[in-house]
Amino acid sequence: MPTRNPFRPSFGVSPRVLAGRGGLIDDFDLALDEGPGSPMRSVLVSGARGIGKTVVLGELEDRARSHGWLVLRLPEGPRLVTELEETVLPSLLTEHDPEAVQRRVTGGGLSPLGSVSTEVTERFPITESLTRMLARLAGIVGRRGAGLLLTLDEVQAAPPDDLARLASAYQHLVRDDEEVALAAAGLPIGIDALLEQPGTTFLRRAERIHLEPLSDDQVAEAAVATVRDAGRVISPEAVQELVRIAHGYPYLLQLVGYHAWRAAGRDEVITLADVRGTLPVVVERMGRLVHAPALRGVPPGQRAYLQAMAQDDGPSSTGQIAERLGVTKGNQNMQRTRLIDRELIVPAGHGLVDFALPYLREHLRATST
């Protein structure tokens, strides 16, 4: 009897069965063969939290490695360029540059002119730039018949100036026909901010891919395949309930499947009751890991708008929201637009809005007091 749980509800961990993203992965794989100039070598992936951006990056990295490419995961957060210049790139160059050791020995003064070389180096130290080190690394792997893939997750967490410097360095590599590719992922608001920076104009020509929720059929097929490959069966009714709870989100597909598998114990068949019982933990986990971070930094006026929406069991009337908040129609429209830009709400028909993220309504109700 199988016991190992095949579902993997950890953010960024590739599932055993990848649902709905095969076309994107295959297009990138083909671009690696097409050579410099292929449009799919520069990819910007956006989407809501839990939609599978990090998993897609991981799959792109795996495809690059299968071609023999070197994958460089760029540091996330506020020290992007600093860590690249001071730690990451020097370490990679030391590892991959066959002349690195020879240059260090020569610079140590072993030759008859060593003392002169040492004196000049000390008086006029040369600090390698991001562009120069990336170019040297790309050249090294290129001479081996491979390429260099740069990947960056959580684009919105990087300083705009660092992103501009990175884009400029990458542009130099592309213009020099180096075997390079770039795949970056982030929330839509982060990708938009990146492309608005003066120094990132070049990236506006990158392929912009917005990940949408999976279709019901894609969720169902992935759930059935995952369970079947692990030696069990999931009933048709349980599949339908899993689809309903998951709302097309790859993370929720894994989360519901994981807890339903556990609930089934040693039974061969995962039942409707096993899946239905996962709902409380799904709502709690989404609230803690997805909604709380998504709401962090949302201004009070927009939070109030969301709380007003949470009073409804379905789509909310914008006119009724304005009445509840005691604001003008213009103020309501402004808050609505900003929340749509944050991808927290979506238009749901004429004069109607709804929550964009599954179970955000339940989270707001639970945290309103």
Rank of each mutant, 00 (worst) to 15 (best):
T3E: 14
N5G: 06
P9K: 03
F11S: 10
A19P: 00
R21G: 07
D26S: 15
L30N: 12
L32N: 08
D33Q: 13
E34Q: 12
P36Q: 09
G37V: 09
S38A: 15
S38K: 08
S46M: 04
R49I: 03
G50P: 04
G50M: 04
V55R: 08
V56W: 06
V56E: 06
E59D: 08
D62M: 13
L70M: 08
L72E: 10
E76W: 06
R79K: 09
T82W: 14
L84F: 01
E85D: 09
L89H: 05
L89S: 06
S91P: 03
E95I: 06
E95S: 10
D97W: 05
P98T: 00
V101S: 14
V101L: 14
Q102Y: 13
Q102W: 13
T106K: 15
G107N: 11
G107R: 11
G109N: 04
L110R: 14
P112D: 06
L113T: 12
S117F: 13
T118H: 12
E122L: 13
I126Y: 14
S129P: 07
L130H: 00
L134Q: 03
L134F: 07
A138R: 03
G139L: 01
R143C: 11
R144M: 12
G145N: 01
L149R: 07
D153G: 01
E154L: 03
E154Y: 03
V155K: 00
Q156Y: 00
A157K: 12
A167R: 00
S168R: 12
A169V: 03
A169C: 06
Y170W: 13
L173M: 02
D177T: 10
A183L: 04
A183M: 04
A185F: 02
D192I: 01
E196G: 10
E196H: 11
E196V: 09
G199A: 09
T200A: 15
T200I: 05
R205A: 11
E207L: 14
I209Y: 13
P213G: 04
D216E: 14
Q218R: 08
V227N: 07
D229E: 12
Q240L: 15
V243M: 08
G248C: 07
G248H: 02
Y249C: 07
L252F: 01
L255F: 09
Y258N: 11
W261G: 01
V275Y: 12
V283P: 05
E284G: 06
M286H: 08
V290E: 06
H291R: 09
A292H: 14
P293R: 12
R296K: 12
G297Q: 00
G297E: 01
A308E: 08
M309G: 04
A310I: 03
Q311G: 15
Q311A: 12
G314A: 15
S316E: 02
S317N: 10
G319M: 03
A322G: 05
K329T: 15
M334K: 15
Q335D: 09
Q335F: 15
L339A: 08
L344D: 02
V346I: 10
G349M: 10
V353E: 04
E362V: 01
L364S: 01
L364F: 03
